[in-house]
Every structure is written in structure tokens, then in C-alpha cells.
């Protein structure tokens, strides 16, 4: 099944797709590179600045802080969502109408437009009209996301967990469903404990989907924009201003094209490096499959 045929005419099949993606990807990318070395003041007023923007962006304290915030945010949500997603996948019903019902309910948050997600949580956490904000206040807990940075962080993480754990859970669920029944039967006959079944059968079979889950979650959390923007607007102060938002503020809000382009490229290079490492890891994992034999 894996022996592909060398055939350079396959390029013809790829071509239409290539034209479309290149139109949307390469031309804007080139423009961004062009911006990054100039100071564009207007249609006919621009100056070549060389590497100045890159230098200032790399040494910008606010951006470095945003970058660190971004990394911590991504790591925190990964640390919560991956185990939680596996756990949910393990207790989801396997068949019957309950399985369908749970599936539909679980995927629900994934299908809500991102700014609506922000709105939902903004409403939900308000002290006057939101259930959660009101509930916490009734319980006597000081909770205010517009004033307390800790509360804002906790809420954004809670929102992201609410929003994206279903993706991890669904990935794991379909990974678990692909384990043949014989594995569980053999494990019973071998007297494996529940933990042993998880450790030696389920978890190894999940590695493939887990890599996809980590990859997707990392990338998406890195470009998170709409939800925190709607929920906290980046505040209080800049406590929840993540990379995308800094970038958008700079490019759209302040019209600082040069710096924001330079910053975009740095950002893009980091993403490229991380995705390349992930991609190579996935590919090498797949290569490890038995060279011969197998069904």
C-alpha cells in the first residue's frame, strides 16, 4: 500500500490547488517581506530602512513580554487539555444513541464562531448578568476580569479549555475506536489491569493522534486572537495581550506597517521552526513501522 509510483505528471493534479494557495499565501508573504524593510508612509512616500525594524522588534520589551505570555499560555492549555481530552475520550460511550448524542454535544463548542465564543464567555463571566460571575460573587469570591489579571488569565484558560478540549477528546476518541477488540480481549486473558490496558494498549495507539492534537492545539493557541480580544480586550493592562493581538494592534490600529511586518516574519519563522520539528517527528514515527510484513 505504501509503494508510491514515481510520476512527475502528478504535478498536473496538484497545480490547481497550488495556484489557489499560492495566490493566497505567496503574494501576501512577499508583500510582508517588502514592508519589513521599508518605512511606508503613504502611496508615494516610502523609505528603505534595511534591517532596522527587525532590530527594534527583536529588542522590544513589550513584544518579548507578549511572546513569553504566549508561550506560557500555550504550555498551560496543552498541559490541561491533553490529559483532560484523553480522560473524556476514555469515558465516552462507545455505541448506541448515547454515543451519537455525546458526540454532537461535545463537538458543539468547536462550531461556534470565535468571536461568539468570546461573547458567550464575556456574558457568562460578568458580575451583573453572567451566571458564573454572579455565582462566584454570591459565593463571596472576589472575581473581576477587568481588574484582576489573575482572574482574567484563569478565565481565558477556562474558556480555551472549554472551547478546544473537545478537539483533543474527539481525536483521542477516534484513536481509541480504531483499536481492534482483540487487543482488549487479549489483555483480559493476560490478566492486565485497567491501568496496564491504558498504559500498554490505549496510550501507544493514541500517540499518532496525540501528536496531531498537540500540533494543532499548539498552533491554534499561538494565533489565538478573537476570543481574548472580545473577552478581555487584552487587559487588564496588557496582562492578556497575546502575540496576534499585539501584531494586529500594531498593523491595523497604529498603521505601523514596517515594524508589524518585521514582527510577523519573526513570528512566522518561529512557527515554521516548530512545525518543521513536529512534522519531521511525525514523519519519522510513521517510518518506524515494520519495514516488511504487517497486513
Amino acid at each position: 500500500m505504501n509503494n508510491k509510483v514515481p510520476n512527475n505528471r502528478a504535478w498536473l493534479l496538484v497545480l490547481p490547488m497550488l495556484v489557489l494557495v499560492a495566490f493566497s499565501a505567496i503574494i501576501p508573504l512577499m508583500t510582508v517581506v517588502n514592508y519589513s524593510v521599508q518605512d511606508v508612509l503613504g502611496p508615494n512616500a516610502r523609505f528603505f530602512t534595511g534591517t532596522e525594524w527587525f532590530q527594534s522588534m527583536l529588542n522590544d520589551d513589550a513584544l518579548q513580554a507578549a511572546f513569553l505570555r504566549q508561550i506560557s499560555f500555550s504550555l498551560i492549555i496543552l498541559a490541561i487539555q491533553i490529559p483532560l481530552g484523553i480522560g473524556i475520550a476514555l469515558i465516552m460511550p462507545k455505541r448506541g444513541w448515547q454515543a451519537s448524542a455525546v458526540l454532537i454535544l461535545i463537538t458543539l463548542p468547536l462550531l461556534i464562531p470565535w468571536n461568539v465564543v468570546g461573547s458567550i464567555w464575556q456574558i457568562f463571566t460578568r458580575g451583573d448578568i453572567g451566571l458564573m460571575g454572579w455565582g462566584l460573587r454570591e459565593l463571596g469570591i472576589e472575581y473581576n476580569i477587568t481588574r484582576n489579571a489573575g482572574d482574567a488569565w484563569a478565565t481565558i484558560i477556562l474558556m480555551d479549555v472549554w472551547h478546544w478540549t473537545p478537539l483533543v477528546a474527539m481525536l483521542c476518541y477516534s484513536g481509541l475506536r480504531s483499536i481492534p477488540e482483540a487487543y482488549y480481549q487479549a489483555a483480559r486473558i493476560d490478566r492486565a489491569s485497567k491501568w496496564a490496558v491504558f498504559r500498554y494498549i490505549q496510550l501507544p495507539k493514541l500517540t499518532n493522534v496525540l501528536v496531531i492534537a498537540v500540533l494543532l492545539r499548539f498552533m491554534h493557541s499561538f494565533m489565538i486572537y478573537a476570543e481574548p480580544f472580545v473577552l478581555t480586550g487584552g487587559g487588564p493592562g496588557s496582562a492578556t495581550t497575546f502575540l496576534s493581538q499585539s501584531l494586529t494592534t500594531m498593523a491595523v490600529g497604529q498603521q505601523d506597517l514596517g515594524p508589524s511586518a518585521a514582527f510577523s516574519l519573526i513570528y512566522f519563522l518561529v512557527i515554521l521552526l516548530v512545525s518543521w520539528v513536529f512534522y519531521t517527528t511525525i514523519m519519522n514515527m510513521q517510518k518506524d513501522k515494520p519495514p516488511h510484513g504487517g497486513a
Binding site: 503574494i27 512577499m30 508583500t31 517581506v33 517588502n34 514592508y35 524593510v37 521599508q38 511606508v40 502611496p43 516610502r46 528603505f48
Partner: peptide
């Protein structure tokens, strides 16, 4: 013209 090409970037690409 909106792509604001410069010589160095043209050479780069």
C-alpha cells in the same frame, strides 16, 4: 505597486 517592491527583496526572492 501596492506590493512596494525594493531591489534587495527582489533579489532575495
Amino acid at each position: 505597486s501596492w506590493m512596494v517592491w525594493t531591489m534587495p527583496t527582489a533579489i532575495f526572492f
